[in-house]
Design a protein around this nucleic acid. Sequence first.
DNA 1: GAGATGACTCGTGCGATGTACGAGTCATCG
DNA 2: CGATGACTCGTACATCGCACGAGTCATCTC
Lengths: 231, 231
Amino acid sequence: MAAKRSGARSKRSQRVSERLQPVQEPRSEPPLSRERIVATAVELLDDRGVDGLTMRGLADRLGSGVMSLYWHVDNKEDVFDLALDSVLEYRGPPQIVESQDWREEVVHLLEDWRASMLRHPWSASLLPRRALGPNILSRLELLSMTLSRAGVADADLNVAIWSLWNYVMGATITRASFDVSDDDRAAAQQRLTRLSERYSTIERSRLLLDNDWDGAFRKGLAFLLDGLAPR
Amino acid sequence: MAAKRSGARSKRSQRVSERLQPVQEPRSEPPLSRERIVATAVELLDDRGVDGLTMRGLADRLGSGVMSLYWHVDNKEDVFDLALDSVLEYRGPPQIVESQDWREEVVHLLEDWRASMLRHPWSASLLPRRALGPNILSRLELLSMTLSRAGVADADLNVAIWSLWNYVMGATITRASFDVSDDDRAAAQQRLTRLSERYSTIERSRLLLDNDWDGAFRKGLAFLLDGLAPR
DNA sequence: GAGATGACTCGTGCGATGTACGAGTCATCG
DNA sequence: CGATGACTCGTACATCGCACGAGTCATCTC
């Protein structure tokens, strides 16, 4: 019987190149592959959100049977893990100016991180409960190196990294979830107004209506960096 | 036919007090109520996590039929919303010393927030996608007032609040998810070691093994507060 | 060639889930 | 006494993840 790939992911042999030209029914879909599955899962997640991803729906969109997916993928959780990491690849800072000051590099890395997740809002709610894939680790490594080269003491390095991570995660997750429910936010602010004696301060500052997310993110990040490495 | 409560939650009439003593079968459970449902949902979430909460399981634990729940509650999402907010009530700072300096008040509020969520780890992964209940809003109001009284300019208030929110949410969510998967974390660090040429910096600082979550939270928060309101 | 191997696909079927529907119970009121 | 309305609950259904095992086909071994 088929030996079904074990926990350690063994890629299928790349005999694809040696395949004869697919004379049979050239209109049929290309063969399944982990990459194609992941890419399609990302599409589907973008279209329909976390709850919209079902193995049946994924198979439909791939033109395959449901159970074929399980050859390439362990289970549905695996699909989430792979989709998440695939969306978080980092291409590095713009190379126009090579060695800028470290603050700009950190800001770029983190703003890009946030942007990548907001491009796929499901990723924000997914990241917290999932494993750290290679792309995520690469980003952490790069961040770590930059901070270290910037002179952050080794003893403070972990605190600094986690602080930035926390800030970015919180900001992104919050933004992504509020973005989905713009109406809810207005409704919430209205509820506030109705109860204005209990929530007068946040009602007055229109906390829930403030729409300058990008600006707030940048400003808050600047504050945090000021605290981490006073200029 | 029963008029099933509409969107606006109409509480059941509190005719409970006028009930005759429940002579019939004193061993049966007390009657269903929204409060009892929510409390039991919290128990069940604590025991079995987010995926462990099912309407059937909830009904079982309450000794009721499944569909009876739907009289008191709109749907499963509603249960999550209510459980989440019920867990985030804030009792205020220790009143031993009434008017401390504002930093201490803020730190206490936020550390308590984090602690409340970590006591119920499911709440961390739930908060991002759910509505803001009254308890959550109260906390925001109090935070806002404290910062305002501390002299934070109105123009910076929203940024300050969201920065702190982001930090706390990120820290708590991260902590809660890593806590669940302590082994995974060790495994991840081992993977790092195996690939140490690619991830040398975070491997060296043992980023994924650092266990002083509380200390890191406090230190990072101090950094952020330094940035927000330099002393 | 013949047969074995193993990569890959897929149909069927099971158990679990959220909840719509409508029928049931019972205290209260006019 | 009959009506009302608050509340309970059994049945039923569509949908889900996935276990199982049978099927296809290219390649390898002798």
